[in-house]
């Protein structure tokens, strides 16, 4: 944290020569005296049954457009074959029509992977937004100011996880907020709420005893695309190497 602060200050000083230095990089807002919560999510891949209720609940709770091109969260089905091929599908019925799935002998292993915004510690989307319309809250949740977003879509290009889309009506960037309006009231995100197998675990990363802390204690976890140094706060257990 100290090094990051130092680097961002240094960068701020360098860039400050070009414009008014407002002391803000990555949009860390000032204020909030109490130590804020740091929200995160755990996803236990071996528990996901691919029912897609999280996707539907997310679309409903957050008024995400129903068309199959806009998702704040979605589920991928991986089928790793003996010959090394890996078939990936989005199992949303709006994209992949439902069908009777039979056992394929060539498939070595198959599983579902829920995806959503990783609420990165180093969010590339926040870094590139020209107007500072996307920023991380003190809780570490990356939000979009839809009153200021100019719809340049640079953040969509910068997100390694495909977690952002351009809202077709607002014409501004849109993304998962961890259900900010719920979690700030002590509720669970809608996807976590409806998950029938508790494959998703949500909580405060700094809490000493919580389902999320237990999840992180009991499982070997991994994050997506760690080499990009985005430091995601969505932790997967049983993450297969084929998942990207």
């Amino acid at each position: 944290m100290k090094r990051r602060l130092f680097i961002s200050r240094l960068l701020g000083i360098v860039l400050g020569l070009l414009g008014p230095l407002s002391g803000r990089l990555r949009g860390s807002p000032a204020g909030n005296a109490a130590t804020p919560k740091r929200f995160g999510m755990g996803i236990q891949i071996d528990k996901c049954i691919g029912c897609g209720r999280c996707v539907d609940a997310c679309k409903e709770e957050n008024a995400v457009p129903q068309e199959p091109f806009y998702f704040r969260t979605w589920i991928e089905r991986y089928s790793v074959k003996a010959d090394g091929d890996t078939i990936v599908q989005n199992i949303d019925e709006r994209i992949t029509p439902p069908r009777e799935v039979e056992v394929d002998r060539d498939v070595l292993r198959s599983f579902f992977v829920p995806k959503l915004c990783n609420q990165c510690e180093n969010p590339p989307c926040v870094q590139v937004c020209p107007v500072g319309a996307t920023f991380a809250t003190p809780e570490g949740i990356v939000l979009v100011d839809d009153k200021r977003c100019i719809g340049c879509r640079y953040c969509i290009q910068a997100c390694p996880y495909g977690a952002r889309y351009l809202h077709p009506v607002k014409k501004t960037a849109d993304k998962c907020t961890f259900c900010y309006h719920r979690v700030t009231k002590g509720m669970l995100p809608a996807c976590v709420e409806v998950c029938p197998t508790q494959a998703r675990v949500f909580g405060d990363l700094s809490s000493t005893a919580s389902p999320l802390t237990r999840f992180r204690r009991m499982n070997k976890t991994a994050v997506l695309k760690p080499h990009l140094n985005t430091e995601p706060r969505v932790y997967y257990s049983d993450l297969d190497g084929e998942v990207r």
């Binding site: 407002s22 949009g27 807002p29 000032a30 920023f135 809250t137 200021r148």
Partner: peptide
């Protein structure tokens, strides 16, 4: 900027 941030958070 920070006012915009606060307003967005509130919204």
């Amino acid at each position: 900027h920070s006012r915009h941030v606060q307003a967005t958070i509130a919204r």
